[in-house]
Design a protein around this nucleic acid. Structure first.
Length: 923
RNA sequence: AGGCGCGUAGCUCAGUGGUAGAGCACUACCUUGACAUGGUAGUGGUCGGUGGUUCGAUCCCGCCCGCGCCUACCA
């Protein structure tokens, strides 16, 4: 083995070995365990959030595989309708052509070409992350099988009346020319204005109502003015009408609870065709809906000539100018308002009346709510169930049509009269409706929302609607691992669809993880320029390359300077290569409940060092065991028994925490065991045994313990850091008598594989305290570690003497002692520095080593510390309420502690006196 | 406006009704034959503030301050 851990040398070979040998395939034996990957967008690349999520899923997958379960981690991607279409359109535009020029068929060919290329980026990233997905089962939402499932669901829902077509108000992207889901609309506060317009009252020249609006141009589509029914100021006007300026129309004044009398003038202009609230008011009052805009958000022919064809913004200016000219502009105020923008185009979304397809949500939501209420599905952490219910109780019908080309085309056909037929294909439609070849049918141009196919993902990937063995084996899946941001859009919809079509919940548990943020707590986004490619942490990246990467293809090029500056500041020397295992371990260590994670490079570095530590510990083990085995019995030393006991404890903690998704606690238990116990103490304790002339049977016991513990530790860590553990395991397993090719299918270690041994733990505790005591004196007195010292034991009990005798090999080696001498009762020791060990004193003679003044200072520090603790304890015991009310064992414990502290204090006092005398003598 | 979460060492984060912990950073010493991506020892915290419950609160409860997110939005 190399002296230093170098992830680049092992990781990719390791993955290739696994993949080529089909090690990720389900075993076909044991309880089924299945995770569906939340399909990433085929157009994109995996960001830190994905890497975090994938690490968690892979850890669960590998863990359950090692528990002997029939484990499937199902990979795949979604087709990301809008995003993908946009990318390809941009490519076409750059090449001087367009989607329209190419035509639908040719365009789709181009998209498929792009998909082949782009999808490769993500699969490569997944491989580099060590994801043990079953590649042979990879699925894509536009695959034939999945498309068949989409059509089947659409048709069945339609047959049941749960899908309908209607003219409704939708979020319309005027650049991309499609409806958007709420998820694709981002509302941010922006500076705007509030314009106050005067609407003259009909038949009463000179009197008018004042309405306030943030969107003056929409007044051309007003069909009413509303006031609150209880508003005294206007009650006499309800039922009358106003003359809508610029249009020559007369519109009614109506009363509706929606109006807030406190805001503005208390009068609201109502534009049912261009505002969601107004739309509902329009419904309630049967108001006409006048759509005044085109798909480009320009004014259409419903408005007076002067405004026709104007873009929204220009129309706004002209309307305001015209009001001013007419003397109908009351005032203009500055106003902050939330502006909804399409997240892809960045353009302001226009509420627009269009023909769309909808899923009737309420009947589907009912059983989906029940499934969480009755515990069929459990959220982890549980809090998220609230978020889920919140949405489900207020669920709206779901607009599933999109005016795109890339996606599942809606299986509906129209005849010449516009009559609509739904069916699995044209032939079925004709057959069912008795339509002969003479009837011309035209398929709906629109496609379905990507989320519609994603909602079927847990069962469509397993072969539904066919009754496949995979479906019956792995559905319902075990757990869904995802972010909270898509509980509404994806999780809830999978539950509804799963219950409706697959005969049960799609998963039993939903593990919701936090968001990965940058070091300043900012959300990572391309626009902010603070995104990190997980591969850049794995392989490292030069500063210049990183700057280039972050500033390339910016939507808003003016941000370039700021991003570059921030990047140069944060990553002065670029990013070093940490390797996948370190990155994964970092994610897991930070995966606490319900909390976003701030990504901290320092943590990754720390865990990279941990990898190196494991690497070198293994090197030590191999160096001392490989080819060193000799036949004969073995005997376990105290240290052997101790480390086995500690390993059992660590395994217990690790296992129980993985079960409850506390990866941070599991990771920490194994980290602490590895570093603080196995490396810091056990390996050191093994040295005097192996390098000395110990009994060969004991040496065999130690070698055995070294290999067995390391081998088990590698298995315990494997789900978290797969590459390092596989590499080391393959070397150490044969020595432990295991002759198999890979760690992947080995059993996850159990606490009962090793014996708990309280006696050994106590004994090693004594030894550690002894060694630490000497080291403290050495450290604080600046005695060179290379210089052996002799220690004297004063007031040693029979047990102490026995321990010192029995464990002298350990003590001498780890504390670097030249000898241990027990002082006879009453024997006066030479001037010494002291370490207290229970009632025993470990004395390090000062002669030539220690400056009495320094020892005095050190004792002083100890006294202060002990004194403080003692005072607090005594104060508590003096409180009669405490003594009478606190549990007896708590009081007893405190009494003991205080007694011990008094003893310590007295001994320190003693030493201070003695050293003080020495100082006086010297003077 | 409603909901959720957070506030613990300089930084990133664990944690518990009864002696406050880790990693990184920092200080001193050390290249001892697994590892300087290391070792040993150490410095560092009125656990956001304030009341209450309790013998005892960093932990439970109320209020306040600060931060973040989500949902609904005021035309």
């Amino acid at each position: 083995m190399d002296k230093n851990y170098d992830p680049a040398k092992i990781e990719q070979d390791c993955y290739r070995f696994w993949e080529e040998n089909g090690h990720f395939s389900p075993s076909g034996k044991g309880d089924p365990y299945c995770i569906m990957i939340p399909p990433p967008n085929v157009t994109g690349t995996l960001h830190m959030g994905h890497a975090f999520q994938d690490t968690i899923m892979d850890t669960l997958t590998r863990y359950h595989r090692m528990l002997g379960h029939n484990t499937l981690w199902q990979p795949g991607m979604d087709h990301a309708g809008i995003a993908t279409q946009m990318v390809v359109e941009r490519q076409l535009n750059a090449a001087g052509t367009s989607r329209q020029e190419l035509g639908r068929e040719k365009f789709l060919e181009r998209v498929w070409e792009w998909k082949a290329q782009s999808g490769g980026t993500i699969s490569n990233q997944l491989r580099r992350l060590g994801a043990s997905v079953d590649w042979s089962r990879e699925r894509f939402t536009m695959d034939e099988g999945l498309s068949a499932a989409v059509i089947e669901v659409f048709v069945r829902l339609h047959e049941e009346g749960l899908i309908y077509r209607g003219k409704r108000l939708v979020n319309w992207d005027p650049v991309l020319h499609t409806a958007l889901s709420d998820l694709e609309v981002l509302s941010e506060e922006e500076d705007g204005h509030l314009w106050h317009f005067r609407y003259p009252l009909t038949g009463d020249s000179g009197r008018y109502l004042v309405v306030a609006t943030t969107r003056p141009e929409t007044m051309l589509g007003d069909t009413a003015v509303a006031v609150h029914p209880d508003d005294q100021r206007y009650s006499n006007l309800v039922g009358q009408s106003v003359e809508l300026p610029l249009t020559g129309r007369t519109i009614p004044v109506i009363a509706d609870d929606y109006v807030d009398p406190e805001f503005g003038s208390g009068c609201v202009k109502i534009t049912p065709a261009h505002d969601f609230n107004d739309y509902e008011i329009g419904q309630r009052h049967a108001l006409p809906m006048i759509n005044i805009m085109t798909a480009d958000a320009c004014l259409n022919d419903e408005v007076p000539d002067a405004y026709r064809g104007l873009p929204r913004a220009e129309a706004r200016n002209k309307v305001v100018a015209d009001f001013e000219q007419l003397g109908l502009l009351e005032k203009v105020e500055d106003h902050r308002l939330k502006v909804p923008r399409g997240d892809r185009s960045g353009e302001i979304v226009e509420p627009l009346l269009t023909d769309q397809w909808y899923v009737r949500a309420e009947p589907l939501a009912k059983p989906a709510i029940a499934a969480v209420e009755n515990g069929d599905i459990r959220f982890v952490p549980e809090n998220w169930a609230k978020t889920y219910f919140e949405w489900m109780y207020n669920i709206q019908d779901w607009c599933i049509s999109r005016q795109l080309w890339w996606g599942h085309r809606i299986p509906a056909w129209y005849d010449a009269n516009g009559k609509c037929y739904v069916g699995r294909n044209e032939a079925e439609v004709r057959a069912r409706n008795g339509l002969g070849a003479e009837t011309k049918l035209r398929q709906d141009d629109d496609v379905l929302d990507t989320w519609f196919s994603s909602a079927l993902w847990p069962f469509s990937t397993l072969g539904w609607p066919e009754k496949t063995p995979a479906l019956s084996t792995w559905y319902p899946t075990s757990v869904l691992v995802t972010g909270f941001d898509i509980i509404f859009f994806w999780v809830a919809r999978m539950i509804m669809m799963g219950l409706k079509f697959a005969g049960g919940v799609p998963f039993h548990e939903v593990y919701i993880h936090g968001l990965v943020r940058d070091e300043d707590g900012q959300k990572m986004s391309k626009a902010k320029g603070n995104v990190l490619d997980p591969l850049d942490l794995i392989d490292g990246i030069e500063l210049e390359t990183l700057v280039e990467k972050r500033t390339a293809n910016l939507m808003q090029p003016h941000l370039r300077k700021r991003i570059e500056k921030a990047t140069r500041k944060q990553f002065r020397d670029g990013i070093p290569a940490f390797g996948t295992d370190a990155l994964r371990f970092t994610f897991l260590a930070l995966a606490t409940t319900g909390r976003d994670i701030r990504f901290d490079l320092g943590r990754v570095e720390g865990y990279r060092n941990f990898c190196n530590k494991l690497w070198n510990a293994s090197r030590y083990v191999l160096l001392n065991t490989e080819g060193k085995d000799t036949p004969g019995d073995h005997e376990y030393s105290l240290a052997d028994r101790w480390i086995r006991s500690r390993l059992a404890a660590a395994l217990e903690t690790a296992r129980s925490n993985i079960q409850i998704y506390r990866f941070d606690l599991a990771a920490r238990a194994l980290y602490e065991f590895s570093w603080n116990e196995f490396c810091d103490w056990y390996l050191e304790l093994s040295k005097p045994v192996l390098h000395g002339d110990a009994d060969p049977a004991v040496q065999r016991g130690t070698r055995r313990t070294l290999t067995h513990c390391l081998e088990a530790l590698m298995r315990a860590l494997h789900p978290m850091m797969p590459f390092l553990t596989e590499t080391i395991w393959q070397r150490v397993a044969p020595i432990a008598g295991i002759s198999e090719a890979t760690i992947i299918h080995q059993r996850y270690p159990e606490p009962s594989d090793f014996d708990r041994d309280p006696e050994a733990e106590a004994a090693i505790g004594w030894i550690r305290d002894f060694i630490s005591g000497v080291r403290q004196v050495r450290g604080e007195m600046d005695i060179a570690p290379s210089r052996p010292v002799e220690v004297l034991l004063q007031d040693a009990s029979a047990g102490d003497r026995q321990n010192a005798e029995r464990h002298s090999l350990y003590l001498q080696s780890l504390a670097r002692l030249s000898g241990i001498r027990v002082l006879a009762a009453g024997e006066r020791p030479p001037p010494s520095a002291t370490a207290l060990h229970g009632s025993m004193k470990i004395l390090v003679p000062m002669a030539g080593l220690i400056d009495p003044a320094a020892e005095l200072a050190r004792l002083g520090r100890k006294q202060a510390k002990t004194g403080k603790e003692l005072a607090a304890g005594e104060k508590k015991l003096e409180n009669p309420n405490f003594v009478s009310n606190a549990p007896a064992e708590v009081v007893a414990e405190l009494r003991e502690r205080v007694a011990a502290l008094r003893e310590t204090q007295a001994q320190l006092e003693n030493q201070v006196t003695r050293v003080g005398e020495l100082l006086d003598d010297n003077n």
